[in-house]
């Protein structure tokens, strides 16, 4: 699989990261290298191996369904750029 700079721009856009054309070229080289490494690894037979979803072989601890959080709206909103009537204000979102 080979990438071109348009792919880099698209991936950057999806992640909302601004990359200049020069940066895109540099990133292209790095990502192509990583993909090359993955291609080499494809040669390994992984049949019957469960894909790893976490580095440690432990399972999720569960929490009891009890309210532990109190209302701290004022504190949290003290660092927000804009609030009104308890709402966080953001630039208008269109559907």
């Amino acid at each position: 699989m080979s990438l071109n700079s348009a792919d880099i721009k698209r991936i950057a856009h999806l992640a909302r990261i601004e990359v200049s054309d020069t940066e895109a070229e540099a990133t292209l080289t790095k990502l192509t290298g990583i993909l090359g490494l993955i291609e080499q690894m494809q040669a390994v037979d992984t049949k019957g191996i469960v894909p790893m979803s976490h580095s440690q072989d432990v399972t999720q601890r569960l929490r009891d369904d009890v309210v532990t959080e109190t209302n701290q709206r004022e504190l949290f909103q003290s660092i927000a750029p804009a609030v009104e009537g308890g709402l966080y204000l953001v630039p208008k979102v269109i559907e």
């Binding site: 369904d65 009890v66 309210v67 532990t68 959080e69 209302n71 949290f76 909103q77 308890g86 709402l87």
Partner: peptide
């Protein structure tokens, strides 16, 4: 449930905005 899926904030409906929004 009484609380959110990943935190102990209440899920009660109709409360004042952001009063049940924890960290």
């Amino acid at each position: 449930t009484k609380t959110k899926i990943f935190s102990g904030a209440s899920t009660a409906f109709g409360s004042e905005p952001n009063t049940q929004a924890c960290v």
